[in-house]
Amino acid sequence: MDPYLVSVLSNIGMISFIALSAYLLLLTGEISFGQQAYFAISAYGSGIATAMWGWPFWAGLLWGATLAGLAATLVAIPTLRLRGLYFSIATLAFAEMVRLVFEIFTYQVEIDGELVGPDGSDGFRDIRYIYDSNVTAFEYMLVIYGLLALVLIGFFVLERARLGSVFRMIGEDPMLTEMQGLNATAYKVLAAAMAGVIAGIGGGLYAHLTTYVEPKIFNVMLGVHSLAYGLIGGLGTALGPLLGVGIDIGFLESIRAISGYRMIVFGGLVAVLLIIRPRGILDEATVHWLRRRWRRWIHAQD
């Protein structure tokens, strides 16, 4: 496969994790500007585990995602009492705090005569596990998409399970949910923890692909983008955020003719799209319609 294509696809895959993370919270009606915090925590956490402590890749990734999930839970407990915009701004404040802490966070050890580890604003170099283990870029892409597929399967199971409908119900009307005897806040904390883990998987994968992370990558732009992907692609299905990522990174990045004006075109497109479809391309009604068509088609085959 063409190396350029592999790198674009890998990028799409990794960003999809954080987009799905923001999407999961959107389902429960919460807008988070701060999922990049968990992406960052896991990128650093898993990087430290493999590059500095000599852990194997999978253990490092698991460790990073766990850290991200824990952090997300700890943040969710005090902030999810807040409603609407207050929650959104709290997530933003937390994510910026995380970024600024990484700007000053230094923790280095000497390995083979070289200092390895996060060095404040200079970032964290040499997270070389994948290259040292001779994993090719193509194989790593398969790892990314394998994990993404697992997460997506999780989403599809969720959509059909009771938990998924509780999440959507909270998003529609938290009061109604409470009146049915369900603790909406507890469910939201659960959703936030899951979203943290999902972002964490993406962050760990990211650190090992690029071998180098620096705090400024995890700025609020990443967070708002990941939120926007869900809304562009549509809130009706977990494929929506993926479509959003695909449109931005895959489609627009590949059109060279608009390279210098990409954001002018993209910004305008998104603005117009949201006028026509305020809940994205694959919104609930469209997904419902597609499902019906699909079922009818299956029946016709029988």
Binding site: L227, L231, M263, F266, G267
Partner: peptide, 19 residues
Amino acid sequence: GAAVASMVSSFAIWMQLEE
């Protein structure tokens, strides 16, 4: 009713203005 759409749209225009 679509407050989130407005906000994301204003973000998209942010990107546009900056470029």
